[in-house]
Amino acid sequence: MASRKRTLLKVIILGDSGVGKTSLMNQYVNKKFSSQYKATIGADFLTKEVQVDDRLVTMQIWDTAGQERFQSLGVAFYRGADCCVLVYDVNSAKSFDNLENWRDEFLIQASPSDPDNFPFVVLGNKVDVEGGRARQVSEKKAKQWCASKGGIPHFDTSAKEDLNVDDAFQTIARNALKNEAEEELYIPETVDVNAAAAPRRPQSSCC
């Protein structure tokens, strides 16, 4: 166990364009915020090492483009994800309504082995705008939706004011770790002397 590699978590951030996915990631990883909007082209990738309880893990964050024209990015973006972060803008009801689609899209593309228990985290971003007066999606409404999807954790966040960003990502890491598959072992078969070099049907055995 001593020489075991640090766990790597693949985290995908999804949500409509302009809800602040990149800003959240940038605030979290680089502690920086820019109010100037720059659309993500394709995807951005950042890594951050975080401490979760007594474990040091590396988060590999896949920040995807919200625009529909980038939806052909392919299954590789979703494949093997350990946690999916759904982001909406609390000042845009539409971005919240679309979370349903983003969640479905993820479950279809990633097809996780246990979809009901796959770890999602929902972030309602931009709570700082106009001191909250522009808010269209109440925290209560959001939490109701999260509860109906199996108790997804929900955070009100502000990438601009660094509100709840660390807490949210800590939860993301923790939940992703919780979902970590059991250590798997696979004992390969040995070449059958009688069948010599002929490829054999796979046969697994678990310990």
Partner: peptide
Amino acid sequence: CMQAGGTAGSSAAPPA
């Protein structure tokens, strides 16, 4: 492909 917006060329020390 790209880096997160605004990070390139910044003088702030990266976390890693």
